[in-house]
Design a protein around this nucleic acid. Structure first.
Lengths: 124, 124
DNA sequence: GGCATATTCAACCGGATGGTTGACCATGGC
DNA sequence: GCCATGGTCAACCATCCGGTTGAATATGCC
């Protein structure tokens, strides 16, 4: 959606607070929320629905994700919409790939392997 | 270095505890330690040397990194050596790349850009 | 055996985290 | 205007986290 030039990229990566990003990712509820938002943007109430905890708790989680830059929230009417904001995760990913000297994962190959594996598992 | 078959891979990724991996990565001291170990394997005392905190604190950090699977420790004589263990980070990275549908970073291009950028910056 | 080195353990402390509840705004529909 | 809906705020609680210190446990060297 946004058309980041590489300089903007560089700045974002350098200024990104990896502490808060990784801390945000360290909670299973928050990772689940991110996964849900991967499907589609959602209102806060809808995000909270599948979880067995109070709306206030989810609201806090969303605040943490927002402060980490992992999502963005936008109020339209009385509904607050949450959507993924990929830059922060990308910054963390870039940091991680600094460790990629260990023959980095070939994701394409891995996915192909998984597909084959699951397919044959379903048949067998 | 290790010759993981893809099934081993799959198992490791599925059973990896992302909570502990991301939590371990959320601390700047621990990320610095990982970066140091990227250079070379190190003894606990040497890992602790550049930090302004007690050896016991570093020992705890190393324990956390070990429990997260990010490093391995091996005692040889009275010295305990620490070395990177790339699988855990790779598991986290794979999880992250699930969000890669947002035009994933072209790392090669990014690095080339950075190199060019820094070079011209040094000259100008 | 005895001492120095390498590392961990245990107890403690202050501050952050993840959850709760109940009160509090803001907005839309009637 | 009034009520239901959507969401946050504030106070509180238990637990975890990152650090400290001092004692304890290897191991190597003489």
């Amino acid at each position: 959606m946004v058309d980041h030039g590489p300089l903007v990229w560089f700045w974002r990566i350098m200024s990104a607070d990896l502490d808060t990003v990784f801390a945000a990712l360290a909670d299973p509820t928050r990772r689940a929320i991110l996964a849900m938002l991967l499907e589609d943007d959602m209102a806060v109430t809808d995000v909270a629905e599948p979880f067995e905890m109070s709306l206030a708790a989810i609201s806090k989680h969303l605040g943490i994700l927002t402060r980490a830059g992992l999502i963005a929230q936008e109020k339209r009417g009385r509904v607050k919409w949450c959507k993924l904001e990929p830059d922060a995760m990308r910054a963390a990913s870039v940091w991680m790939q600094g460790f990629g000297q260990f023959e980095p994962v070939n994701l394409d190959a891995f996915e192909r392997f998984l597909a084959r594996e699951l397919e044959s598992g379903a048949e067998g």
